[in-house]
Amino acid sequence: MNISYMYSLIAVIILFLLAYVGVKFPGGEVFFGIIIPYLALIIFILGFINRVIDWARSPVPFRIPTTCGQQKSLPWIKSANIDNPSTTGGVVVRMILEVVFFRSLFRNTKCELKESDKISYEWEKWLWLFSLTFHWAFFTVLFRHLRLFTEPVPACVQLVAKLDGFLQIGLPGLMLSGVALLAAVTFLFLRRILIPQVKYISLGSDYFPLFLIFGIAFTGILMRYFTKVDIVGVKEFTMSLVTLNPHVIKGIGGVFYVHLFFVSVLLVYFPFSKLMHLGGIFMSPTRNMVNNSRAKRHVNPWNYPVKIHTYDAYEDEFREKMIEIGLPVEKMIAPETPEEPEEKE
């Protein structure tokens, strides 16, 4: 037992009960169905903007990209244009590959002591694979949900849904993204509790979003395949939300409100948590900077004018006194010692 994940798990269970029971009280449907989701969306958008602006106000005085290849130098030395970008184009390609394929995570290695004293670094791709699965599955699920928020439903949303369910298993057809999402979240959770080093550094704020997303996926799958929700009623309700004409539809059921409440909690939690890596990835100086500090001068933005006294000025001020006590000087007073400059080598 570990308080970090126990507290997170208990928090998610309490949130579940809160929505499940709360919606049965008079006005509960309006509260959990209309007020909370609207508030959550506003907090999400404003919180997100606020956080990004806060980051944009932090100066990044030096070029600090993480370099993974040869820097551009002499023309006959082959340089890594993407892994050590010297142009904006290189940075754009690097960012796209990072955001879409998690390229830096692909380099993940596992460090272990073998035979008690030999250090070894091993190939470790599972984290990359499941993170990529998790993010893409989550995105696919989110994108498919547009069918409930648009009328008429755009063709691209229909196409994604068709591809997602192309195995045509059961009815309603099994969506692969849902299975992948649940499997990947489970992996990411097990990784945190089974690997001792990862468990040691995991906090409540690591477990909570995992449980919450697990809860969202679980309630969604429950509604689609098992308890069965009145989907036309749900769409009537979601459309009323996005056309700013909200009204409660009767008989949608408690699980739906739990699902909606979980999503609202995720939206509110988002800007204040590690989930902000969604915006943060674009703001990472180690990824989004051009490595050109040898070609271009970058001035520290918080440099203030410093009062300086150069050696030349210093010598001008004290030359006579320096000569008097025998200190070497750069410039002699002209007529007196013509042989001095040679000595300065």
Binding site: I49, G233, K235, E236, M239, T243, G279
Partner: peptide, 22 residues
């Protein structure tokens, strides 16, 4: 940030002025 807000609010402006009765 503008791109972000436009994407997030997509359902709101996509359905603007449309009634979608069940």
């Amino acid at each position: 940030l503008c791109i972000f807000v436009v994407l997030i609010t997509f359902p709101f402006w996509f359905n603007l002025g449309k009634a979608a009765p069940a």
